[in-house]
């Protein structure tokens, strides 16, 4: 095994030009991928946060008692689509309205009784935060006698769902294309590297080296180039994120409801590095075949 490591190291240092080119290609391709993934990740997190604001308000009929409301909250809380249910009594509703009217609270003083109904604020679980999910839950809630009315901004939810779907399709398609392009570029750069050493491979074959023996140093090189390339790209991405993305985004933050940008979570970072290694090894796999046959 030491021989292969020595070979790989020697090849890397002695064919410096072409190896720097390969490494640079991997780094650059991964940096672009990384930027895309970071933006997509944050867009999704933003959408999820906005999705969290999708809720259904169920207004209760006048006759519901405090115990009845509690029972109802437990019943609705047990439904599969529901993440949380908050009860808002008539008094709380009035207080909120008073808060909103502030200076003109006098208007409410003249009322003979509190006209506002008690309500339940129902938050949905993430998989149901779309139009289908809301419709499904609304249908279930409509069957409950104690509920007089439901409010959930159907149109807004519909648009939001369509936007999320578009984002998912664009994200998946874009990532797939970008990955394919990265793979092709890297595989071809590795092929160029192998091509430049075809004479050496021929000599190895002539003295009786097995295919695997010939390929092993190339695989090791691919492995290290992928590892180092992805590692460098990760580092550059981090620097770019800290000193550029955040600086550019900061003034716009308020437009996005003060949503804070997040760097790639560790699972993504690990996947990123692993992806680099896989790409290096697979790139070698498709490139080495033709030249390393005995």
């Amino acid at each position: 095994m030491g021989f292969f490591f020595r070979q790989a190291r020697q090849n890397l240092s002695q064919n410096l030009g072409i190896n720097v080119l390969t490494l640079g290609t991997i780094t650059f391709a991964f940096l672009i991928c990384g930027l895309f993934v970071t933006v997509a990740h944050n867009a999704r997190a933003l959408m999820e946060e906005w999705g969290g604001r999708i809720r259904i308000t169920a207004y209760l009929v006048e006759t519901v008692t405090a115990e009845g409301a509690d029972r109802l909250r437990d019943q609705i809380g047990g439904l599969e689509e529901v993440q949380a249910v908050n009860f808002r009594s008539k008094e709380e509703a009035l207080k909120t309205l008073e808060g909103k009217l502030s200076a003109r609270t006098g208007l409410l003083k003249g009322l003979p009784r509190n006209p506002l109904p008690a309500s339940l604020e129902i938050q949905l679980k993430p998989p149901f935060r779309d139009k289908a999910g809301v419709d499904r839950l609304a249908a279930k809630l409509k069957g409950i006698a104690e509920i007089s009315d439901l409010q959930y901004g159907a149109e807004w939810i519909e648009r939001f769902s369509a936007f999320i779907l578009l984002l998912q399709i664009l994200g998946a398609g874009g990532s797939a294309l970008l990955l394919l392009a990265t793979f092709l570029i890297v595989a071809n750069t590795i092929r160029l590297n192998i091509f430049s050493r075809r004479e050496e491979i021929e000599i190895l074959r002539a003295v009786g080296a097995t295919s695997l023996f010939i390929r092993a140093p190339f695989y090791l090189e691919g492995f290290f180039q992928g590892l180092v390339g992805a590692g460098l790209a990760w580092g550059l991405l981090f620097v770019l994120f800290q000193f550029f993305l955040i600086q550019v985004y900061d003034p716009l933050k308020v437009l996005f409801g003060n949503f804070s940008l997040e760097f790639l979570p560790w699972e993504y970072s690990a996947g990123f590095i692993l992806g680099g290694v896989l790409l290096g090894v697979l790139g070698t796999r498709v490139s080495v075949g033709r030249y390393a046959k005995v």
Partner: peptide
Amino acid sequence: RRQVPFLRRSLGIVFQDLK
């Protein structure tokens, strides 16, 4: 094909272009 390396190991080859 997989046996070829073993044949070559039993030979010594001096190439015209040295290699």
